[in-house]
């Protein structure tokens, strides 16, 4: 599986070193995180060492190397959001029955904190994978989670 995907992406982006980030990004988009096998496969295809690829991956916070759920919720914790996100955080922990840093047992959601996502004029804000949600309230959070719970993967 992983082998086929990596091969497909290498064909798409090329074997240059500068293709590394786009390849890793797309694996994360499609498989939620980078498994050790994926890292080894990419290294082989690009003629790099696995440590080199792992070193690059771990540098970027959006290139997850820890097992993550299908939907990664990233709540902004920078100063404007920090003053307003407590209720959101409580609601999410209650709804998902996990703490920050955790992943639900069904591997559908991961709950993470992140640094400023550039939506301070509409705080509090969060990301779900690449989607951005602003001016969120506990009610909105319930709707959002409900939407993703029932969304076909």
């Amino acid at each position: 599986m992983t082998e086929t995907l990596v091969h497909e992406l290498v064909e798409k982006y090329g074997r240059k070193r500068s293709s590394l980030l786009p390849i890793l990004q797309e694996i994360v988009r499609r498989e939620s995180y980078l498994t050790p096998q994926a890292i080894i496969e990419v290294a082989k295809e690009l003629d790099l060492s696995a440590t080199e690829v792992y070193g690059v991956a771990t540098f970027y916070s959006f290139l997850d190397v820890q097992p993550r759920g299908e939907y990664k919720i990233r709540i902004c914790k920078s100063l404007t959001c920090d003053a307003k996100n407590k209720a959101i955080l409580d609601e999410l922990e209650k709804l998902l029955k996990i703490k920050v840093g955790g992943t639900t047992l069904d591997r559908r959601f991961s709950l993470l904190m992140t640094n400023c996502i550039g939506q301070c004029d509409h705080a509090p804000a969060m990301l779900v994978n690449e989607e951005v949600y602003t001016d969120i309230t506990p009610e909105k959070v319930r709707e959002i989670i409900n939407y993703y719970k029932h969304k076909k993967i």
């Binding site: 920078s78 100063l79 404007t80 640094n115 400023c116 550039g118 939506q119 301070c120 004029d121």
Partner: peptide, 11 residues
């Protein structure tokens, strides 16, 4: 790569 917390003008 507008990353400075509190900056969103480039967006």
């Amino acid at each position: 790569d507008e990353g400075e917390p509190g900056t969103f003008k480039d967006r």
